[in-house]
């Protein structure tokens, strides 16, 4: 307890920021308030006077909080702020459901109906590597979260960025592979126009399978990241709430 609990709780209620930024701002503010008061007291100021001075100097007003929100508001938030919350949630749910269904069901059916092993695109192999990396990292994070229950936020967040990176890499490899394969087929047709039909058919078969694989890896990496990120944020929120906006002296484990 540092004597600023009430004020910090009021700030916490008004501080509409995403985690972990919200916790970090509160922890920073709590420590600064306490340290400024301690410094002033050590210099001979009366404790209550020092407390008031610290509050006047550091405690944000509603206007300052709005400025802080402006600094930390994500781009997506800035874009969607123009719609009402209800509309936003409905559209988000619809989009998420639609994208998941299309992205998972479509490619899965294509993959099942094809046999890419007969003449796979060369880009299937890096994609399989990315798929393996996605599974290792994603399952590792889920293991850390749900089995090992290692919930230290810094360790949880470590390496998380690799999942969206892998998702982006898979999409990029799939798209680049399809384009390069297309040029390769075009060159082959230019050299021998009589095999045009067979070459185009082969390109369609191998690259449809390759693109389906790319999409699956992308969606899987994105989903694994989303699941892990949601859990990590909940852990951080729970931790911040359990500690309150003020850090007790024996604690030091917030993000």
């Amino acid at each position: 307890m540092n004597g600023f609990e009430q004020e910090l709780r009021r700030i916490a209620d008004a501080l509409d920021l995403p985690q972990p930024v919200r916790s970090r701002v509160l922890v920073e503010l709590a420590a600064d308030l306490e340290d400024l008061r301690a410094t002033l007291v050590s210099e001979g100021m009366d404790d209550e006077e020092a407390r008031q001075h610290a509050l006047t100097t550091l405690l944000p007003t509603e206007e300052t909080l709005e400025e802080l929100r402006g600094v930390h508001r994500p781009l997506y938030q800035r874009l969607v702020d123009r719609f009402s919350e209800g509309t936003r949630h409905r559209v988000e749910r619809l989009l998420l459901t639609g994208v998941s269904v299309v992205a998972l069901v479509g490619p899965s059916r294509v993959l099942l109906s094809l046999d890419p092993s007969t003449s796979p695109s060369a880009f299937v192999w890096p994609l399989l590597g990315l798929a393996a990396a996605t599974m290792v990292i994603g399952l590792g994070k889920l293991f850390q979260l749900h089995v090992a229950k290692d919930h230290a936020p810094a360790r949880l967040r470590s390496g998380m960025f690799l999942l969206p990176t892998l998702a982006a890499a898979s999409a990029a490899v799939g798209f680049t592979g399809a384009v390069l394969d297309f040029y390769s087929v075009a060159e082959a047709i230019e050299a021998d126009a009589s095999r045009q039909g067979a070459l185009v058919l082969r390109w369609l078969r191998q690259d449809t399978a390759m693109l389906a694989l790319a999409l699956l890896v992308t969606v899987a990496a994105a989903l694994l990241w989303f699941l892990a990120a949601v859990r990590v944020v909940r852990i951080e929120q729970a931790e911040a709430e359990a500690l309150g906006p003020v850090l007790p002296s024996e604690s030091g484990s917030l993000p």
């Binding site: 550091l58 850090l247 002296s249």
Partner: peptide
């Protein structure tokens, strides 16, 4: 009135200052 913080955080976001977390006496301070 805490006007320091939006400025600090904006400077940090723009890369003009760097914020680190210190652990002093079991507490976290930026």
């Amino acid at each position: 009135h805490g006007t320091l913080y939006p400025i600090l955080h904006r400077l940090e976001k723009n890369g003009q200052i760097e914020g680190d977390w210190d652990h002093e006496g079991g507490r976290r301070r930026k």
